[in-house]
């Protein structure tokens, strides 16, 4: 069974230590929910897992191998959903999604991805006409359009309505049933009741540690 894990991570950003001594572990099919007040480093940890940031200390490993050794391989097995939607205003929804899918080795049907989030009727609409919620659906459809083992979701439900959250719950369940893993920071209910919870408040350095 594959394992996505981090060991003894310490992250330093913007001249302060965000967290330290943090370890996590997520098996195939598993889910990890990041919790903690603002500023405790939920987004930082997700970016660290994606390889966008480097840890000051500690390693993140896929199946025992440090992800920093083969960054392109790691990129190939993850999808990252950040705060920005990266939807180009002059490209249609289909063009937006197929561009990202084309950069990856495996692709699914774009139409299936659109249908999963109920935006198949928007397929030929340029991005500039979309509402914030619709753009978010496009972003989520992007990660369905090419399969990847790890989903890193940073507040995925921002701007989503109840219907879209149901779609997201269903897709997450399907992804996990296929052996995928989900690591998310959210306060909304996205069908991760059985997820392991990582509370980042526990890894803040105290005054005494200084």
């Amino acid at each position: 069974m594959v394992l996505f894990s981090g060991d003894n991570l310490r992250c330093f950003r913007g001249e302060r230590t965000v967290f330290a001594n943090l370890s996590f572990c997520c098996p195939g099919g598993g889910a990890l929910l990041l919790r903690g007040p603002n500023g405790t480093g939920k987004s930082t940890l997700l970016r660290l897992m994606a390889g966008l940031l480097k840890a000051e200390n500690g390693t993140i490993a896929w199946d025992g191998a440090d992800i920093a050794d083969e960054p392109e391989d790691h990129n190939g097995r993850l999808h990252y959903v950040g705060h920005a939607d990266a939807v180009k205003p002059v490209l249609t929804v289909t063009e937006n999604i197929s561009f990202w899918a084309a950069l990856r080795p495996q692709q699914a049907q774009i139409s299936d991805a659109l249908a999963a989030f109920g935006i198949d009727y928007l397929a030929d609409v340029p991005g500039r006409f979309l509402s914030a919620g619709q753009k978010r659906r496009v972003t989520l459809a992007r990660i369905i359009a090419s399969p990847a083992r790890i989903w890193l979701l940073d507040e995925p439900t921002t701007a989503l309505d109840a219907g879209a959250i149901v779609d997201l719950q269903r897709e997450i369940a399907r992804h996990r049933a296929n052996g995928g893993m989900v690591i998310a920071s959210t306060h909304a209910e996205i069908g991760l009741a059985d997820a392991e919870i990582l509370n980042l408040d526990a890894f803040q350095l105290t005054e005494q540690a200084a």
Binding site: T17, Q204, A210
Partner: peptide
């Protein structure tokens, strides 16, 4: 909160 080696 510690001072990073940068600052110290």
């Amino acid at each position: 909160m510690i001072f990073h080696k940068y600052a110290n």
